[in-house]
Structures are given as C-alpha cells and as structure tokens.
Write a protein that binds this DNA or RNA. Structure first.
Lengths: 343, 343
DNA sequence: CTGAAAGCGCTTACAG
DNA sequence: CTGAAAGCGCTTACAG
C-alpha cells in the first residue's frame, strides 16, 4: 500500500558525489560551471547527474550563492492589454537570458507594491522590474540603500536617479492634439489618466501645449478625470457630453479609456467619427481590430519591455552600470476614429 | 566615498532575537504563526521586527521548511489573449491566497516544458499549474512519482489520473456547427487547432458529430490544418478559398485563427459575413470589439483559471484531495460574423 | 512557553 | 585540480 504523502527523495549533490566517486565540492564546481575541473572528473559527474536525474535545488543555490537567477516583476494587474504588451516584451528578452520570472500583481492595491518590493529585496529575486508603479516613493529608498538592481517602465523619475524606460508622452499627446486641430476641431475634450502618474501628467501637458501653440484657449470643463480604466472613461465622457457645448473630439489618455468613451458616445445616439472624433494612446492590439479602428498614439510597449530587461541585465552583470533614462519615440497611428467636425 | 557594491546588511532573525532579547527560535516561531508564544514575548519580537524593518528571506524559509509559498505556472506564451485570460483568472484567485507566482513561458519550445517542470519539482515552487501544455507525457511521471501537486488547464487527460480543468469542447464545437447548419450552410470549412492537443481533436469531433447528425457528408478537403495561430489560420483559409467549391462558412478552432481567416477572406475581395460566415472559439476580449463582431463559442477562461487555482490550493492543503476532471460549459455567443449563405 | 542543536541543499573561500 | 569546513537564513524536532 503506497503512502501517498511520502515522496521519493530527490537526489542531491551528495548522491551525485557518491555515484561519481568524487567529493560534493567537486560536484558543485562542475555543475556551476567552474573551469578548473579535470575533464575526466567532469564526465564522471555529468554521467552521475544523468543517471540519477539530478536537478539542482534553486532555493539552496540562491541561499548559499546569493543569486537566485530570478527577476521580480511588479505589474498593476493582468487586465490591461497595455500591461500585457509590456510583459510580452519583458518575457521575450528574459527568455533569451538564463533568468526566470517571479510575477507580482498589485491589482492597484498600493500597499502591496512596497510589501512585494521588500520581499524581492530580501532575496526573492536578483533584480526588479517595475511596470507603471504608483507608489514608488514607498520603497525607492530601500532599493537604493541595498543598491538593488531595478528598472522602471513607463514612469518618469523626476530626480533622474533611477533607470527608466518610457515613451515620449508629451510629444505623443502633442501630436494627437495637433492632428485633431488640423482636422478642424476647436472643442477638444481630454480624458485624463491616473493623475498620480507622471505619464498621465505629461500627456495632459502635451495636450495643453498643442492647444496653446495653436492659440486655442484651454478650457477646464473639457478636462474629465479618468484613471486609465474603461469604466471611468465611460463616466468622464458622459460628463463631457452633458456640457452645454460638448466637445467635437475627445482625446483619451489611453486606448482602454477610449473604449469607454466610445461606449458613452454611442449610448448618446452619436456616432464615431461622424459626430464625435475619438483618439487614444497606446495602440493596444484591440485598437487595430475594433470598430471603428482606433486612431491612436503608439507607444512601443513590447520594445519598452525589452529595453528594460536589457538594462536590468546590464546592471545585474555590472553593478556600476550607469543609470539612465531611455525615452522611446511615440507615433501617431491614423485609423478610422477621427474625422473633421460636422458642420 | 561610498562603495556602491557593498550593500547594507539586511537584518536576520538573529538580529531580531538580539534586539528583542529572546532566542532566534522564538523569533522564528513568532513569525511563522506558532501558537504557543507568550503574548508579551510576541509583542517584543514584533516590535523588534518593526524597528529593524525585518523581512523574512523566502529562500531560506523554503529550504528549511520545505515550503516556498510559490506556485509555478507554465504557459505556452504571452501573445495569445486566450492565455492571458486564463492567467487573469489564475492571478485573481492566487491574489486571494498567500501564494505568489513564478511564471515560465515555453514559447512553444516543447523541451522547455520538461526542464521547467523538473526545476519546479526540485523546490522552486510548491505546486504547478499547466496551461495548455503540449508535452505533458515528458514529465507527468516525474510529477506523480513525487506526488507533486499540479493541475492542468485546458487539457484532456484520457487516463483521468490528473486534475484537469477544461471547457466542453465537443459540445461547444457541436453547437457552433449546428448554428451554421441552421443558418443554411452545407459547405462548412473547418480550421483545426494544434492537433497534438486533445482539445483540438475534441473540437474537430464536435464538428464532425454535428455534420453527421444533420446528414451532411464530411468532406476531407474542407479540413484545413491550423495550429491556433493567426498566420496559419490565414494560410489554411487561403487553401479553403482556392477550392473549386469553397465553403460558405468557416469554423475556426479558436478566435485568433478566425482573425487570420477573416484577413484571408478580405484579401480575396470577399466580405464577412455577406459572402462567407466565420465563427470562432474562445471569446477573447477582442472578439467583442472587432469588426465585424465575432460570433464564437465562449470558454469561461477566467473561471477556468480560478477553478484550477482552487483545486491546486486544495491539493496543497490536503495531499489526498481527490483528483478530478472539471469540465465547464461552453456557450454560443452570436454576434455579427455569420449570416445565411448568399444565393 | 522557550532554548540549543541539527539540518535543509547548496556555494565558496581555505588548504593542499 | 580537489577535499574538508563553514556558512547562507531559516524551521523543527528534542529537551526542559
């Protein structure tokens, strides 16, 4: 009668040592790629490894060697395609390295960010990737005190003390607004992102700058508070449409909230782009297949993820690798959701 | 001059013990929730923890205690929304537990599955979630030999020896085919999934069964080989369209390949659904916002992820938790991509 | 309720 | 090139 709770013991380096007739130190050296091992010894060890089906215990390796070969990733959640695209870029670059990934989703619970960061600093991973973090200030000092390798993605470090990979939000927002102006729009609503984030602020600034450059007065009532989520985009748009002089175009701070905006517009019996134009930001995959296809500002999300990994890997290899701010270009992608204002 | 490579030492239980004036064993007991600790002692320890900002080292905990509080997740990749939805479900359930997630993407490199599985078994995680794995047979024995807790998602275990959470593929495919038949279609093309996977086989069987029940002869030339990816869906559809009597409707084994099918159809100057109907499988988020909105068979992907976590958690708590096959219902979602055949 | 000891499976100076 | 020893930061019987 087999005892289901008793598992066959997994082989350790001691078992390998015995099988190969060498000391466990030698096994360890061979397996960790140490160079000064006699070929014949190496072969004996490798044969024993194969025979016993030995696989190293990562936790023990990590504890003894101080290296986990794990990269921690902190993401706000898995619901936004925006995050997924970045993750995809991260994954593709990590796959090419010999690191693995430990994933923490904060689901916007800001307290969790700091908790997870602390765990990671305490040995759970060798480095940390922060995707659009909200409460960085809560643990940035801890990261720096430990000289812990980390890279932020889609954030703005005003003090320039962190390596940050982001897109040119200001210019992107400027181009989007300018495009609407060139189509003839003068009443342009703006749906903000989560204004705790600098990227959201930068997009608003880009919008303002474009208005100013074209001598269009900034109107406070055309600014609707959003938070990058669809539902709030929907609500904000409702407010804009309820205005006495509703805007003829709406610039949403990201594609997901543009989706919410379009919903709200349709619910009012209006059509996109015939009655109201909508422009987004991000260029998530859905933007190209939805109806109408969304005109938007493309952020190179996958590339941002990749670049961030490359920077982190460089830091991991060389702790003195310079801190830098990488800003990737954004690009206006014109599709079908914008038109000249009617009448 | 600060040495950037020398980090301040992180506090350990020994530091806490000293600060609190107790033994390190007591610190360990207090922190791991051991019940027989005097209240006053507990308070002293907790105060010291707070004062020194102590955070336990997970690797050490895992090595000593044999429990990592990590769940390993093996996914084919991060490009398919299908996988993302499942991951989302997994994440939402894991978040409610005190486990964290270590994520491995195989990117369809089948050898990696076994390697990752071996690492996980060797202490990297306490349990394993397999999302649509391809080469399970390579490591299933190892998992079972160790009595290692695992759950498969969207797989079919013909031997019924694994806990599996999946959707009713056969019935779903049957309903989709039946729907096309009821619209009047008789020439129905079928774009297969990756036929190494039982779920792909089941969908084909459902299609065949529906044809048979409606006395429509099965035609081999109407079956195009796919692999669940857009590009191959596109190619397969090209083949179907090149037939002397091309089908009037195409049933794609998943939404992503339906996207490829629609591309191919448009390239032939034909329209969906006016000239050819297309139906998918999965109901990924894009299906509802694309144009035309995709008629498809919904799999409860998020729920599948959640259920799998719940089962795994149950196994983790009780190693003798019964192995079972959970099959969730699929649902036909009628949108705009199917119509009666023209003429 | 609490301490001292052994051990988890490795890595890495230290000798030789 | 290789062995013996110490140690990584914890947990968990074993005593008391």
């Amino acid at each position: 009668m087999p005892d289901s709770s008793k598992n066959k013991k997994l082989p350790t380096i001691y078992d390998i040592a015995e099988e190969a007739g060498v000391s466990y130190s030698t096994v360890s050296r061979t397996l960790s790629g140490f160079e000064f091992v006699k070929d014949s010894t190496r072969e004996k060890v490798l044969a024993a490894v194969k025979k016993l089906g030995y696989v190293p215990n990562q936790q023990a390796r990590s504890l003894a060697g101080g290296v986990s070969n794990l990269i921690g990733i902190l993401v706000p959640g898995l619901t936004d395609d925006y995050v997924i695209q970045i993750l995809h870029g991260i994954d593709s670059a990590v796959t090419e390295s010999n690191y693995n990934v430990i994933l923490y989703t904060t689901n916007r619970r800001q307290g969790k960010e700091a908790t997870y960061a602390a765990t990671i600093i305490n040995g759970a991973a060798d480095g940390l990737l922060l995707v659009a973090p909200i409460k960085v200030e809560l643990y940035l000092d801890a990261l720096r005190e430990q000289n812990f390798p980390y890279v932020m993605i889609d954030q703005v470090d005003l003090e320039q003390r962190s390596t940050v990979v982001s897109a040119d939000n200001h210019k992107g927002a400027y181009k989007a607004t300018q495009y609407l102006i060139e189509l003839g729009h003068r009443q342009i609503g703006f749906l903000t992102g989560l204004m705790q984030l600098n990227v959201a602020i930068e997009r608003l600034e880009g919008y303002k700058a474009a208005l100013a450059d074209h001598k269009i007065p900034f109107r406070d009532e055309y600014i609707a508070q959003g938070d990058f989520r669809m539902q709030i985009g929907y609500q904000g748009t409702q407010e804009l449409l309820a205005l006495e002089h509703p805007p003829t175009a709406i610039f949403a701070s990201n594609d997901v909230s543009a989706l919410g905006a379009i919903d709200a517009i349709r619910e009012h019996g209006l059509r996109v782009p015939d009655d109201i134009s909508v422009i987004g930001f991000d260029d998530i995959p859905a933007a190209a297949v939805m109806y109408p296809k969304l005109t938007t500002v493309r952020q190179p999300l996958i590339q941002m993820g990749r670049e961030a990994v490359l920077e982190l890997l460089a830091r991991l290899k060389n702790p003195d690798h310079e801190v830098r701010q990488i800003t990737l270009a954004t690009q206006l992608v014109i599709r079908d959701s914008c038109a000249a204002p009617c009448k």
